[in-house]
Amino acid sequence: MTDVIAAPYVPWLPTMPYRPEADGPLSGIRLAVKDLFDVDGLPTGAGNPTWLATHAPATRDAAAVAALLSAGARLAGKTHTDEMAYSLFGTNAHYGSPENPAAPGHLTGGSSNGTAAAVASGSAELGLGTDTGGSVRIPAGWCGLYGLRPSHARVSRDGVVALCGSFDAPGLLTADLGLLRTAAGVLLRGGVDSTPVRGLLAPPDLWELAGPEVRAALAPAVDRLRAVLPVDGKPLFDAAAPDYRFGYAVRTGWEFWQEHGDWVRAENPVFGPGVGERVQVASTRTAEQLAAADEQIRAVRDTMARVLTGAVLVIPTAPQPAPLRGADTAPLRAPILGLTGIASVAGLPALSVPGARVGGLPVGLCLVGAPGTDEYLLELAEVLR
Rank of each mutant, 00 (worst) to 15 (best):
R137D: 11
I138W: 02
A140V: 05
G141V: 05
W142N: 10
W142I: 12
C143K: 08
G144Q: 11
G144D: 09
Y146P: 03
S151N: 06
S151Y: 03
H152Y: 08
R154Y: 00
R154A: 14
V160D: 14
V160W: 10
V161W: 13
L163T: 10
D168V: 00
A169S: 14
G171L: 01
G171Y: 01
L172H: 00
L173V: 04
L173R: 06
D176F: 05
L177C: 03
L177T: 08
L177Y: 04
L180I: 01
L180K: 09
R181G: 15
A183H: 01
A184K: 05
G185C: 05
R189L: 00
G190E: 14
G190S: 13
G191K: 03
G191P: 03
V192F: 03
V192E: 15
T195Q: 14
T195G: 06
R198H: 11
L201G: 09
A202Q: 13
A202I: 11
A202M: 12
P203S: 06
P204I: 06
P204G: 12
L206S: 13
W207G: 09
W207Y: 05
W207F: 08
E208Q: 15
E208G: 08
L209M: 08
A210I: 11
A210M: 11
G211L: 13
V214Y: 02
R215D: 06
A217F: 00
L218D: 11
L218G: 10
P220A: 01
V222Q: 13
V222K: 10
R224Q: 15
R224G: 09
V228K: 11
P230W: 14
V231P: 10
D232F: 05
D232M: 05
K234Y: 07
P235W: 13
P235S: 12
P235L: 13
L236A: 08
A240F: 09
A241L: 04
A241N: 07
D243G: 06
Y244M: 02
R245F: 03
F246K: 04
G247F: 02
Y248S: 04
V250R: 12
R251F: 02
R251H: 11
R251M: 14
T252F: 04
T252K: 10
T252P: 03
